[in-house]
Amino acid sequence: MPETIPMHIDLADGGWLAAAWNPADSTAVGAPVLLVAPPGCEYERCHRVLVAVAARLAESGVPCLRIDLSGCGESSGDLPEAGPARWATDVAEGLAEVLRLARTRKAVLAGLRLSCRAMLEPAVFGHPAVAALALWEPVLSGEAQLNEWLVAERALLAPYGRVPQVDSAGRPRSCLGHTIGLNLASELAAWQPPTQVPARPVVWISGLRPVPAWAQAVDCRPTPFWDRDPAGELIPTAAVAVVVKAIATLARSAHDQA
């Protein structure tokens, strides 16, 4: 099992992004991967699965840097103060760090759920160091994410005879203990699906959502672990294997081109 090195990426404003670096077991055979955890309540539910993906990538010779977005996990700040613009900047910071750690000029961006949307900002995917993108069960609009969080909050509260608190637009004020706040809810609601798409290889790993024309489909049996309590769930090893294979293929291709 490759080692995991916890680290911080220091930001210019005094904050930091928490990260975990999994160097490749032996000589790297693929470009490094920046793996970005989803924000909010899905962070906790997806953490174990992303740890498994990063470890298996490293075992197969693909170094991987996992990051927590601002206001999430071990990173600085709180969720209501973060938002789409900040998260897009976070991905760019993570990209710079993974290039520095792996001493390469190209890297693959891999996201899960809403973190995929941050990668689809032109300023992020347009960076010359981005070789390819892997989008795992992507959520492409903030509105869709808010709706899913509302459903999750409703499911949590139903056994106690309670209903979620919502703002005047019907958006959840919190999800599973994470405050969303009015500003973040408004920013998310305005975060529409991307109008520009990357002119780079993009794989779309999903068993739930139809693949757009600009991406290549990788079929993955739907295992909505982001919607379930990790204490009652096994790591979906079959899905992890599919995801690792898809990302590693992109990373090797980028490595060969480099």
Partner: peptide
């Protein structure tokens, strides 16, 4: 099984 940020951080 929750990471070290704890439940809901």
């Amino acid at each position: 099984l929750l990471p070290r940020s704890g439940p809901a951080r």
